[in-house]
Design a protein around this nucleic acid. Sequence first.
DNA 1: GTTGTTTTGTTCTTACTGAGAACATAACAT
DNA 2: ATGTTATGTTCTCAGTAAGAACAAAACAAC
Lengths: 383, 383
Amino acid sequence: MATMTSADLRVHNQARLLRAVHDAPEPLTRAAAARLLTIGRNTAGALVGELERARLLHEIPAASTGRGRPTTLLVPHPEGPLAFAADIREDSWTLAQIALGGELTELESGEHDRTPAVFTQIREAVERHATDRLAAVGIAIAGPIWDGRWLHISHLGWDAVDLDEHLGDAWPTVIGNDARLAGLAEARRGALRGTGTAMHFHIDFDIGGTLLLAGDSQGGAHNIAGEFGHMPLTGSPLRCMCGALGCWSLDVGTNALMRRFGKAPGYGAGRELGREVLRRAEEGDAKAAKAVDDNAAALGRGLGALANALDPEAISLSGLGVDLIRLRRSLIEETCEAGLMAFRRSEAPPIVAGTVGEIGPLRGAAEIAFDEVLTPEWLGSRL
Amino acid sequence: MATMTSADLRVHNQARLLRAVHDAPEPLTRAAAARLLTIGRNTAGALVGELERARLLHEIPAASTGRGRPTTLLVPHPEGPLAFAADIREDSWTLAQIALGGELTELESGEHDRTPAVFTQIREAVERHATDRLAAVGIAIAGPIWDGRWLHISHLGWDAVDLDEHLGDAWPTVIGNDARLAGLAEARRGALRGTGTAMHFHIDFDIGGTLLLAGDSQGGAHNIAGEFGHMPLTGSPLRCMCGALGCWSLDVGTNALMRRFGKAPGYGAGRELGREVLRRAEEGDAKAAKAVDDNAAALGRGLGALANALDPEAISLSGLGVDLIRLRRSLIEETCEAGLMAFRRSEAPPIVAGTVGEIGPLRGAAEIAFDEVLTPEWLGSRL
DNA sequence: GTTGTTTTGTTCTTACTGAGAACATAACAT
DNA sequence: ATGTTATGTTCTCAGTAAGAACAAAACAAC
């Protein structure tokens, strides 16, 4: 609960208004915004007027919906702030531009050589596209990031890469784990919208996720929470490359599928094989089907355990998880239920596929970038 | 972010002030409170004045500490609101009265027959002691409580006891799981004070806990989060009485100790045996020592897994956990570290004994009761 | 013992906020 | 053409916290 003076009040309400516009699934009218924030029409008019003059919001005539004087639609200002979001995958990257409200435009993409030089590539791409409107940059990457600075990405051989050496400070830059950001995207604009407590899991080579509380991804002490894949939830006897024993990720994800077919669980190289296993399972190949079964069962078992601990309203999945729901929904639900405490079974959390899709990490990166902007502090300096 | 008018501002700041007084480890002076809330001395004077007139705060001369005009100490008003807190254990209960700031006075205690009749006993005890000052009642009990209403306490044979049938509505009443409330007490007034992200585990017959974010215990969708003991973290092959398989609680806690000595893991009956095992282990009995070793190792293993997932700043333990830290600190730390992802090991979260002690659940119950009071809504109605 | 220093309390003014009432306006319905 | 409905606009008003200036109460230094 921050300090609040009568002058801060205005900025506070303007931040609420901008947040409402940004979060709304469809453009908000000025009248609807006033109702949503429970402020008077006069106050709404004053707030919007100042935000328009600050080139943050723009009003356009709204199509009339019935009786009553027509109102205006609140849309991002044509000269308003933009966020850039980058998604770094195992050998490629994408840069996109996002406006207030979430409109996303892809700017550029490329390949990289699996070294931290990718950050230079991205920085240069940002510089190519940057204008005065660029307010913040968000980056999604697969791997843990200690305190937003130290990268520990075992499959790229990055041990403790110092981001401060690779990112410029020309723009406020925030970075997050791809699984966390995919979850954040679902919570803000996808399947988990409106939930109080929810969980998201992104299944790729391994499994990562995030606890979402009221639309916010929980970062923990070092902004490195969410490594649910590195809990021993399925009794695997194997040692994980993270250093611990029996991690859930050894049984769920593309690596787990690959291991079934005698391939070393390399990262980045085996995504095609993973897809192939799914395809063969769909076509009736028994060995592939068994591998998918085991993957789904291990997924369900872990979800049940985590639901006991964290009591989510809903659980969403992205990446391979979407395929697993499509192919093995009932198996996942049964194993999840078996792992739930008995009294929870009658109201088990729904397990749903994410609706944001492949661009989840990119969207999530845009969200954390805009979170830097939609603050009373930033707003106060802009007005 | 709630609606805020210039009139709400006053109540908002008064709530902040009362919260500061309640949370402060030592009585706050008016001048210190003004600095803490970063409000002017004039504003502080006005706020305190109104709170004094509303019989919420009282000012007494403060001992002077050096130069400068003497200030006043902000203490609870002699006619101010009180919370009652009850702690229900397996065969006994305690009722206490708590004032703003946390001063706790035990009122009454008794035994019960392990049926929901205990709630009638407590209600009658509350009525015996209630005055106009009683503002809210908080209850701690060992077992999950669905949506604050349905109790599922297997060791008492309570399947879905409806609290609404057993608690009156004469006072606002809130109820919480004892492990969660012990954790809340540590976060507000104990070893976890000031942490952003922390975890607490209460080890009794089994193990329960809570995730604490900025001093708040996370309840989940049905206020029933925190059943970390019912995750399969240690690879136990046994079925748990919760209905799931391989729960952590099968390896940690008094029940786990008892099982080692051929006793059925009953609840409530075996606490003495648990203490006896600890005593014998301290005296050098090999079998007892091994049982304690296994308990501590299983504890550490689970803590490591959970630290990977939730990235706590610190972990505190209560109940049997305090003894385990005393007797087997290094074993717990080693097994925890072995379960951590390698890159986390250099900055593993400290594992500390709770400092609130046995009355943790009672203190936590008082906190949730006062949380009902220290809101802008309650305050607004009182002023 | 006098004087200066430091900290806090008190008073008054001021800039600013959002609410509310009254009225104006622009659509649709009859 | 007239009434209804929802929204925009203008003005007044009660209320907030900040800031400046001053008063008061303690200690420190000489």
